[in-house]
């Protein structure tokens, strides 16, 4: 147990360093933009009428405090970290005076729900089918699926998304094409609202799956076709071990390692949002929020979203590293 604790503490330290460095880079980059949020807000507030200089001065002081721009750069930096630790990124510039954290919290459930479901489904289906295709190489259905996937895989995601939008929104309009839920949805009716959300998510989820499944499928298929030639698989077949058991415990189990690492990276990236998906399907998630923040020069919002994704990716990578010995016993606290 002791080596594992040493490993754990080392890994946690590494996590902390990565997060710290990442957030610092994001801080430096956003703070080097020529936009001064205080002046921007004041000019917006005073555009329609004259305000006394004293009032403007007071406004400037309280805004500077809100944006954390008081004092020397070093003091600003320290107060930034004080605020980050309690999850406060100041008010949003583009949606003044709503706090950044509130905007992010509002968008996060949409993005996480959409991407968690689609990423997990894509991963599961792609690996399952890829594993089957690699093991039962004579199966015609799986072969046909392989050919279709290989053809679809190079098509850029936005093309897939627009084709699906056209197909199910105009040619055969059975699904809603935009938004996370109906405008007039009654949010007190929990079941009805949930159903409404699910229906709205079908097109984005399907498009993400169509674009993502090929990579998992082909990766798993080639991993499996290497593993079926390993001695332990041949030997188990010679021993008359049932094929289903060989597929699960001998083939898939040995192939799944790299795929799990890939999944962890994708799950971490959920917090980046799916920018193209959310734009195409008008989905109210982190991706849309990030794009509008960049367009509006809303750097506290950009910094907030960046921090969340740095934390998300690092946490997922950390988790997978800690859980990896469960997947492959040969990887130990090394």
């Amino acid at each position: 147990m002791k080596p594992y604790l040493t490993y754990l503490s080392k890994r946690l330290l590494q996590f902390a360093v990565v997060v710290f460095v990442g957030i610092n880079i994001a801080y430096v980059v956003t703070h080097s933009t020529p936009i001064n949020p205080v002046e921007q807000t004041i000019s917006a507030a005073t555009a329609y009428g004259s305000t006394s200089p004293e009032a403007i001065e007071m406004m400037r002081r309280s805004l500077s405090e809100l944006y954390g721009l008081e004092g020397s750069p070093w003091q600003q930096y320290l107060s930034f970290w004080q605020r980050v630790l309690v999850g406060d990124f100041g008010p949003s510039l583009s949606a003044f005076p709503t706090p950044v954290s509130e905007l992010i919290l509002r968008a996060l459930p949409w993005t996480v729900g959409l991407l968690l479901v689609s990423t997990l489904l894509t991963w599961f289906l792609g690996n399952l089918l890829g594993g089957l295709a690699g093991y039962y190489r004579e199966n015609r259905v799986l072969r046909a699926f392989g050919v279709v996937t290989a053809g679809l895989h190079p098509v850029p995601y936005y093309v897939v998304a627009f084709v699906m939008l056209l197909a199910f929104g105009y040619l055969w309009p059975i699904l809603p094409i935009s938004g996370g839920a109906s405008m007039a949805a009654d949010r007190t009716d929990v079941v009805g609202f949930a159903l409404d959300v699910v229906i709205h998510s079908i097109l984005p989820v399907l498009s993400l799956m169509a674009a993502g499944i090929g990579g998992w499928f082909m990766g798993m298929r080639s991993l499996v076709s290497n593993i079926v030639t390993e001695d332990y698989v041949t030997y188990a077949e010679l021993a008359g071990v049932r094929r289903g058991k060989i597929l699960r415990h001998y083939v898939m189990r040995n192939a799944i390692g790299p795929q799990v690492t890939g999944l962890a990276l994708q799950l971490g990236a959920i917090f980046n949002g799916a920018i193209i998906t959310e734009q195409v399907f008008g989905y109210p998630g982190i991706g849309s929020l990030l794009i509008s923040a960049v367009h509006a020069g809303d750097y506290s919002l950009v910094l907030g979203i960046t921090t969340i994704s740095i934390l998300g990716v690092s946490t997922m990578v950390l988790l997978i590293d800690l859980l990896y010995p469960l997947i492959d016993p040969r990887v130990e606290a090394a």
Binding site: D231, Y232, Y235, L238, A239, G240, N254, D328, P329, R330
Partner: peptide, 19 residues
């Protein structure tokens, strides 16, 4: 197989499933 006819394979080092 195994009940009546069994097999010790070449390269026995790698015939056991590593996981």
């Amino acid at each position: 197989r195994w009940k009546r006819l069994s097999y010790i394979m070449q390269g026995s080092m790698s015939v056991l499933n590593p996981v």
